[in-house]
Design a protein around this nucleic acid. Structure first.
Lengths: 153, 153
DNA sequence: AAATAACTTGAGTAATTTAATCAGGTATGT
DNA sequence: ACATACCTGATTAAATTACTCAAGTTATTT
């Protein structure tokens, strides 16, 4: 299990836009420079985010991108869903879609665990907003020292 | 994010072995039939599990595999770690290993969230034992109805 | 001790996914 | 009009995943 580059890029782009405080539109080119991400790839990612309704675009000279919602209203989960459709793919959906068979047909004790894991992941990602990610000060050590599963402050 | 086939296969194989209650060794061929997994792939997966110390092998005619520990002692997390080395790959490790750069150098507010997500996932998977997975009755609906992040009963 | 069943190993390949690139478009502001 | 910047889809390259194959070694059983 891992976070793909496009997910991480998307997150960084949204957070970067958040930091501009929707003051003015930021061009994809500028975003690419700021975040050190291939420019064409940035366009592609922003397109996904726009379709997901997370950013708005302004065409023409001096145009660019702005967050469609305030940073406190955008959840990390929204970004992941906007990019991939879903956050966590259940293995068993492969079977359900008929590509394979595991032969358990509903009386499986394993499948619920994956399902629950998916819910757990999604709940956590939905508890973190873009606003939470806009501070510079949070360090890894801070977060890791708290063993409970609350949202990052 | 998703559970790969080899992870899911490994889990099913360990649970299947658990159900034999370490009464006798089960051949990889039989396991492949029972679980409907390509035989050669089963061999490969069992090799990983043996090296991780989760199963023991008995060579020769009549030989096969047995769990190395009791089902209540084997955590789902052990299986994932045994197969892949780690459960959740942090994006930022790519940067740390020098393959890429994000330019934040420690003052990043996003990275802690991925770290925490990894801890969350690992904690949950370590709260579920193979014994928990051996029952036939658990249904997906049951699990999903409880919104809290406790271990599956 | 010979046969057989079973584990062991490592290399190789096909399919899928991810990451990135390219080559055109179209809309907008000055 | 012209430059800027968004929009779109196709293509390619790299990486990962999911197997497959072949040629061993080891340990029972008879």
């Amino acid at each position: 299990m891992k976070i793909t580059s496009s997910i991480e890029y998307a997150t960084r782009l949204v957070v970067a836009l958040g930091k501009f405080h929707s003051a003015e539109a930021v061009s994809s080119k500028k975003l690419a420079e700021i975040e050190n991400i291939p420019a064409d790839f940035v366009d592609q990612i922003l397109m996904h985010l726009r379709r997901a309704g997370l950013v708005k675009s302004q065409r023409g000279a001096g145009g660019g991108y702005v967050l469609a919602l305030s940073p406190s209203k955008i959840k990390l989960g929204d970004i992941l869903r906007g990019m991939n459709g879903r956050i966590f793919d259940d293995v068993c959906e492969k079977y359900q879609s008929g590509k394979r068979e595991c032969g358990r047909h509903g009386s499986c004790a394993i499948s619920p665990v994956w399902k629950k894991l998916g819910v757990l992941i999604e709940d956590y990602l939905d508890s973190v907003t873009v606003e939470d990610l806009m501070g510079e000060k949070t360090s890894c050590a801070q977060v890791l020292s708290s063993p409970t599963a609350e949202a990052v402050q």
